[in-house]
């Protein structure tokens, strides 16, 4: 088993139906491929119907499935506003935030008179109180370029793998994609393309 000398923890935030659970499975299986100990939590049920979905992934010398506030090395967020809701998980100052600039507007907002989704700047302002390592990625656009907007999650996973000293490799992720998509070559290829889009975009942003 590959030894990590300290825990590496990833919080994933999103909304039901955005591929949070699939992304978590891909990351978890990549760790398994590399023989790195991993635990992860997920919440199903009522939360799936358009509600907030969070998943926590922990590698290395860890035991339980939950991440305490202030402990996550990375916050990977699939929806703009949900990034702010989960931001307290991040390690203050040093933690990385990779966030989708795509917004999913809750219907309850439209039902409220004058209900308006917050400006991107206002959400960024909350997040930047916690850390300056913030990377905004238009995963919707990048996934569209690949030809399948459902690959937004894998675009963001690609960005995650570009973080300096990230413990997992692209090779293990490709193995995880093959497990997930039962070796359907076309789907795997599309997802690798999406992964590369996210990976390269993140590398550019970090320059």
């Amino acid at each position: 088993m590959t030894k990590l000398d300290k825990p590496y923890q990833i919080e994933i935030a999103g909304v039901g139906g955005t591929g949070v659970l699939t992304a978590a499975m891909l990351i978890g299986n990549s760790a398994l491929v590399q023989d790195i100990f991993v635990v992860q939590s997920e919440i199903h049920g009522m939360a799936q119907r358009g509600g907030v979905v969070n998943t926590e992934i922990r590698f290395g010398p860890v035991s339980g499935p939950l991440i305490a506030d202030g402990d996550a090395d990375v916050l990977l967020s699939f929806e703009l506003g949900e990034t702010a809701r989960a931001i307290r998980k991040i390690i203050p100052k040093d933690g990385y935030v990779i966030m989708n600039s795509h917004k999913i507007i809750p219907p309850s907002l439209s039902a409220k008179k004058g209900g308006k989704y917050p400006e991107t700047e206002d959400i960024l302002a909350i997040i930047k109180k916690f850390t300056n390592n913030v990377f905004l990625i238009d995963a919707f656009k990048l996934a569209s370029e690949v030809g399948d907007t459902r690959t937004q999650n894998v675009v963001l996973v690609g960005a995650l793998f570009a973080i300096p000293n990230f413990p997992l490799t692209k090779e293990s992720l490709i193995k995880a994609l093959n497990i997930r998509f039962r070796k359907n070559e076309k789907v795997v290829a599309t997802n690798i393309e999406a992964f590369d889009k996210g990976y390269n975009t993140m590398k550019e942003l970090m320059k």
Binding site: G50, G51, G81, I87, P106, S108, G115, I126
Partner: peptide, 24 residues
């Protein structure tokens, strides 16, 4: 303790739209 000068969960939520589960 976690740095409590940072915004609390309630303070953050107050600036975000609520997102309850809903009928599809």
């Amino acid at each position: 303790e976690y740095e409590e000068d940072l915004p609390s969960q309630d303070e953050i939520n107050a600036q975000l739209p609520i997102r309850p589960p809903e009928l599809c």
